[in-house]
């Protein structure tokens, strides 16, 4: 290689253009080392790992490595780390889980992926819901129950509220009057006449005599509190009119305009631990009781 410093003495290939000769110097040593190291590496790799494609299959390599195997090992390693915490989640009740900062944080963080997979499609990644369609989980208005056990129950068994359609049994003027009352009640401007009409129309059977929801929830109807600032199906006059006229979860074949509000049951899709952790997360959105 040192010969290259005396170009006149290096043999050439016989080609010459304009006095420039092509010399037969070997490639630099580092290049040759890299070249040989590369093909040696390739052969070792071919022997150890899956590499050569065949007609219907490929060579397996003597290490037996596959990508899915490595993935499963990683998942198992991750599960092994989580196992003791999940065991604790299974053993602890809601109150204990919420009171322990470490477990609360573990549940909140672990449930993030589960919430994203199963809940966020309707309720949004931050539990904010979709106005008029899916309830907001981060506020403190609960159609059913906002305590830990109630949330667990909602996730496990699902919820299906109901409200009858009133277009048949209340006349148009009465429905309009009820609408005026409901909108006023949410702003704290309810009139006694309005409340009297509300009670006379039979609404109090579910929504309570003060229109504040209340004990009627025991019926499992999910009758909402009409005096708070939260609207399940939108606050515009048209929205309220539609809800009173066509109700909630009536048979769509009979009442085409009825509101559909069904929370599916996740008890057979998710483990009890996962549901508990989800309940912590939902509680931590900011409205948990």
């Amino acid at each position: 290689m040192a010969k290259q410093n005396k170009p006149k003495q290096v043999p050439d290939t016989g080609y010459e253009w304009d006095g420039i000769r092509e010399l037969t110097n070997p490639p630099p040593r580092w290049w040759m080392i890299t070249f040989h190291a590369s093909w040696i590496f390739c052969i070792i790799y071919f022997i150890l790992y899956p590499s050569i494609p065949l007609v219907t299959d490929h060579t397996k390599g003597i290490l037996g490595w596959t990508m899915i195997k490595e993935f499963k090992e990683d998942v198992a390693a991750n599960d092994a780390i989580k196992a003791p915490y999940l065991k604790k989640v299974a053993e602890m009740d809601g109150q204990a889980l919420m009171a322990d900062p470490g477990m609360r944080n573990f549940a909140d963080s672990s449930a993030k992926a589960i919430f994203g997979d199963f809940c966020a499609g309707c309720h949004g990644t931050g539990g904010q819901g979709a106005p008029g369609l899916f309830p907001n989980l981060s506020d403190d208005a609960w159609l059913f129950a906002g305590d830990f056990d109630g949330i667990v129950e909602s996730i496990t068994d699902g919820r299906e509220g109901s409200m009858p359609a009133h277009i048949e049994d209340i006349d148009e003027a009465g429905i309009n009057k009820l609408t005026d009352f409901v909108i006023a009640a949410a702003q704290g401007k309810a009139t006694p006449e309005g409340l009297a009409h509300f009670n006379a129309s039979g609404c109090a059977d579910c929504h309570g005599e003060d229109a504040a929801g209340g004990a009627i929830n025991d019926l499992g109807s999910g009758a909402t509190n009409l005096t708070d600032a939260i609207w399940r199906f939108g606050s515009s006059r048209d929205d309220v009119l539609r809800t009173i006229r066509y109700g909630v979860n009536e048979d769509p074949e009979d009442v085409p305009n009825t509101r559909i509000a069904i929370m599916p049951a996740f008890g057979d899709k998710l483990s009890p631990e996962a549901i508990k952790m989800l309940a912590v997360k939902v509680h931590q959105f900011g409205g948990g009781k």
Binding site: G126, S138, A229, G286
Partner: peptide, 17 residues
């Protein structure tokens, strides 16, 4: 918290997390 940026509570107040 960015999602949601704020939440309206039942008494009408605004909550940020």
């Amino acid at each position: 918290e960015r999602q949601p940026l704020f939440t309206q509570m039942s008494d009408g107040s605004i909550q940020n997390r």
